[in-house]
């Protein structure tokens, strides 16, 4: 496998955030997906929702602006934006199940070409960590996934079928990895954008699923066109 630079986490999340549309309700998973909130396009007004019932919260709070009663789904202190509303946990998930969340961004261990993904349990270990992932995956209008293209051992994570217990079937719409941007189509993964210096053949070599190469394949976009 070529030892070429891969994409960093922030540009990966920036690329997903470019897809957010004005007015969307956005739910960001704990960990890497939180980075999506760092990419701001002034002409887009987004409503960030977190499982613990904050609707319309703002960026992470610097220490002097932190409020001990206001945290996001990862327990990080965030700022209140004008228009913030608070509901309790059952109402927060009522909003999710009704399908009001326009996009949820999550990490995953595996994604399959049929839109399945797995991020809550490894069968060799006891138990699992679901949090709000299954409710969001089953009910949000769109599921975007961010993950490293290969495992630590170099194995593929973009698969024909998931090997781990899935979080929800057939829901993933868009995947960003450190090698590119992939749309999940009825025919499988479509490579839309590739990391700089990586050819489609090199990316295919790290991927179990067969990639469809987009007619308008281009290099990975780091910023939206002004």
């Amino acid at each position: 496998m070529p030892e070429k630079p891969r994409l960093e986490r922030q540009p990966m999340c920036d690329r997903l955030a470019m897809e957010f549309q004005d007015g969307w309700i956005v739910n960001l998973g704990v960990g890497m997906p939180t980075l999506c909130s760092n990419y701001v396009e002034p002409h887009k007004s987004l409503v960030f929702h977190s499982e613990n019932g904050a609707i319309g919260y703002g960026p992470l709070a610097p220490p002097e602006k932190a409020d001990r009663h206001l945290v996001n789904a990862g327990g990080q202190q965030v700022t209140a934006l004008p228009g913030l509303a608070i509901v309790h946990h059952a109402d927060s998930f009522a909003l999710i199940r009704k399908g009001m969340v326009d996009v949820t961004v999550m990490g995953a261990y595996e994604v399959a070409e049929n839109g399945d993904f797995a991020n809550w349990r490894i069968p060799t270990r006891k138990g699992g960590g679901i949090g709000g992932a299954m409710d969001l995956a089953a009910c949000a209008k769109r599921v975007f996934i961010t993950l490293e293209h290969t495992t630590k051992e170099g194995g593929p994570r973009l698969l024909k079928r998931c090997t781990l217990p899935i979080t929800a079937p057939g829901v993933v719409k868009l995947v960003v990895t450190d090698l590119g941007l992939f749309e999940v189509t009825p025919e499988g993964f479509k490579l839309r954008e590739h990391a700089p210096g990586w050819t489609p053949a090199e990316i295919q070599a790290c991927t179990e699923a067969r990639l469809i190469i987009a007619d308008d394949l281009r290099e990975f976009r780091f910023r939206a066109r002004a």
Binding site: E51, H89, G127
Partner: peptide, 29 residues
């Protein structure tokens, strides 16, 4: 282990005198 929204709704059902409820969460898992 219970999905968080199902956990919250199962508690709410107890609070609201609901005998059971249908949720789309976990279908296919």
């Amino acid at each position: 282990v219970i999905p968080q929204g199902t956990l919250a709704e199962r508690i709410r059902a107890a609070a609201a005198g609901i005998g059971a409820f249908y949720t789309p969460t976990t279908v296919g898992t």
